[in-house]
Design a protein around this nucleic acid. Sequence first.
DNA 1: TCAATTGTTTTTGTATACAAGCGAAGTGGT
DNA 2: ACCACTTCGCTTGTATACAAAAACAATTGA
Lengths: 227, 227
Amino acid sequence: MMEVKTRPRTAQTLREALEDDIAVGRYPPGSRLDEVTLATRFAVSRTPIREALIELSVAGLVEIRPRRGAFVRDIGISRLVEMFQVMAELEAMCVRLACRRMTAEEQAVLVAAHEACILAADQQTPDDYFHANERFHEAIYAASHNGFLAEQARALQNRLKAYRRLQLRVRNRVKGSLAEHQAIVDAVLEGDAEKAENVLRSHILIQGERFNDFVASLDGAKASLLS
Amino acid sequence: MMEVKTRPRTAQTLREALEDDIAVGRYPPGSRLDEVTLATRFAVSRTPIREALIELSVAGLVEIRPRRGAFVRDIGISRLVEMFQVMAELEAMCVRLACRRMTAEEQAVLVAAHEACILAADQQTPDDYFHANERFHEAIYAASHNGFLAEQARALQNRLKAYRRLQLRVRNRVKGSLAEHQAIVDAVLEGDAEKAENVLRSHILIQGERFNDFVASLDGAKASLLS
DNA sequence: TCAATTGTTTTTGTATACAAGCGAAGTGGT
DNA sequence: ACCACTTCGCTTGTATACAAAAACAATTGA
């Protein structure tokens, strides 16, 4: 069997490596994750592979069907909308708390992250914007001063990573995202918690909708998901 | 070493067994979970024990410090408050959605669960009330018609199980809890989503506060936590 | 020709064996 | 006597071996 480029396994854990491979689409939803194949690919025994797969299954990215193996969890579109709904609520909570509690430094970090987003959006590199966007939201999580909430938000953001990335491909979505960020920053700087909360909530909800559009637009042409 | 009563391991998984043991206090926060000890206790090899511990660590009940073992996660009081805050928001979201979406049958289930709580509260058995209470909240999760949200709510409720149980020991807490439930049911039946949301939110937040009281009241006498 | 049953093969789940790191205790030096 | 260093034991992390279940294929009977 033809060996595809195997990442050198720097210092990152097996779990992170698999997480990335799933997010990037190397292992598409529904595909089987064979233990021995993975073991040979990463040049380890089955044991650490199994442990990584268990972690991923608890985290929700992988489904382990007893006695028949691990599969990349295929999230239906309706469940995806549900997840974005919860994500919206978590982020709304974050920004609400952030409005009350955030320090001047944290405000500066948020503004800087926003400006980085603007820069990344200008040059037509969608992946750069994707990462700048992640840091923007991270700034809000951290500013909530609720460590547990921030963890939950990060975990769910990570679980939705693949879909958030795709959703950015929708026409004019980056521009729209940016405008929403601006509104959020404005509200936060004004200290208008209620406004910030509402804008952020719909900023997330719109992602679920745009993803829906995206899927609908390709319809039969599932193959191009990995284009 | 003296063998304490080892549960016969009916059909439940190792993970659930350990979860229970932690919730019940057999393994108090901070205590070390030795792999070989657990292996002999459950009469299995280290492998399935390790896998269960990994699951628990991802779920957040256990902390695995590399190369030094697994410990029951010791949740500080401030983090606990954070967790109750998030729980409150999740439940508020559940009831808000439930108000809009719940069917007549689901309303009936909720009312029935509430009545079961009243019955359980009358007879002075705190554990019965605890379980009836769980079913009451479960009815709300299910009625949200957002499967993912319901899963998240259940997971967090489970993680807080030990603390919710203790918090019920505070003077008059059961009576107070019941009154709050009544208010929630009323609001839901009226279809007043905003009211239901607010009442439920503070119903959860109050648990964090009452737990705080509870800890403060014993103060030095940590030993009696397991009374 | 098709279905069913049986035998083979592949794959998961568990046990055991082995390697390597951390901690504790002991030893030697100052 | 006190501190640093070394060594030994115990525990985790990983590899391998084995058992059992599921998938697959082939053969036989209708």
